[in-house]
Amino acid sequence: MWFQILLVLVLVGTAVYLVRSTPNAKHLAIRRLVVFLGLAAGVVVVLAPGLLTRMANAVGIGRGADLLFYVAIVAGLVYVVNEYKRSVQLSRANTQLARELALAEARLQDRIAELERKEPS
């Protein structure tokens, strides 16, 4: 039962993360930590399959495979959110780069036109 509450909280948390936070070094460190913990947990449950089922039972889920499924869905969702935010950031950087290029070219053209007006050759 209370795993349902936890799951809902995690999903709401993901939504808040999507809207609110901006990426920084702290988030990057947390993300990397989570990845390593996930890998370690993976090794543990592969070696001791019974552990997963006992953990699932402890939070009110019948089978270990179901717990794995729920966790995988949440992990996938968080990944999508992270990638979306990253792509927004990249496209903003891309826009700025393109704009600077356009403005630099325009300034150059203006300068040349100005010089040509001053001393027509």
Binding site: T95, A98, R99, A102, L103
Partner: peptide
């Protein structure tokens, strides 16, 4: 006076470039 974006970025981006210029 035409300022050229190298490729399509969107109306908001174009407006900002124009204001910047």
């Amino acid at each position: 006076r035409v300022v050229r974006h190298p490729y399509n970025l969107g109306q908001g981006a174009a407006l900002q470039t124009g204001i910047g210029y």
